[in-house]
Amino acid sequence: MTTMDIHQILEHLPHRYPFLLVDRVLDIVPGEKIRVLKNVTMNEPFFPGHYPHHPVMPGVLIIEALAQAAALLSFNTMGSKPDENSVVYFVGIDNARFKSPVSPGDQLILEVSILLRKRGIWKFAAKASVDGQTAAEAELMCTLRTIE
């Protein structure tokens, strides 16, 4: 599978509205990288409060969208889907930088590549861009846990 529509994404992520922050997988190379699209619309639930006079997507939600892209890459690499007892947790977020605001009408392109996979810890290089300009970037570390 090299692309995923929203129905396939919903099979691979436990997130749902209002916290599902990816719309389409444009390209995926299991074990290597993924490129994902997030359409940013004025209908996002955070815009009325951030900020009413100049809506800007919160940086923490851009990082979360990158993490969701990373989770899609991880599950695809493992050849599995999450079950109701699977949770992906952040272990660390390093070198996060926010370079330009993301506004309603933007198409956010999320690019994530695997840097390391060791003892259940995944480390990713992640970048979000709009029209070819970097909006945010970070190194993300995550782990998959089963909850009881």
Results as ranks from 00 to 15, higher is better:
R117M: 13
L26A: 01
N85D: 12
K99H: 13
F46C: 10
T134S: 07
H53G: 13
E64F: 11
N85K: 14
K99W: 08
E111F: 00
I93E: 04
N85R: 14
V130K: 11
F98Y: 12
F47D: 08
E84M: 08
R24F: 06
I109E: 14
S113R: 14
R117I: 11
V22G: 08
K118Y: 04
L21G: 09
T134C: 12
I114S: 00
D23L: 03
Q107H: 13
A71W: 06
V130A: 07
H53C: 08
P52N: 09
P45H: 15
L115N: 05
V112Q: 04
A126G: 09
P52K: 08
A138D: 03
G31W: 11
T41S: 14
F98L: 05
L61A: 10
A136I: 07
K33T: 02
L21A: 10
D94H: 13
V112P: 00
S74Y: 06
F47I: 09
T41E: 09
A128G: 15
K118S: 12
A138S: 11
P58T: 14
T134M: 12
R119M: 10
G31Q: 10
F90V: 05
D27E: 15
E44T: 08
G132R: 01
M141F: 07
E64W: 02
S129N: 12
L108Q: 09
M42N: 06
V91W: 00
K118R: 15
M42K: 07
G132P: 04
L37I: 02
I109G: 03
D94A: 00
K33W: 00
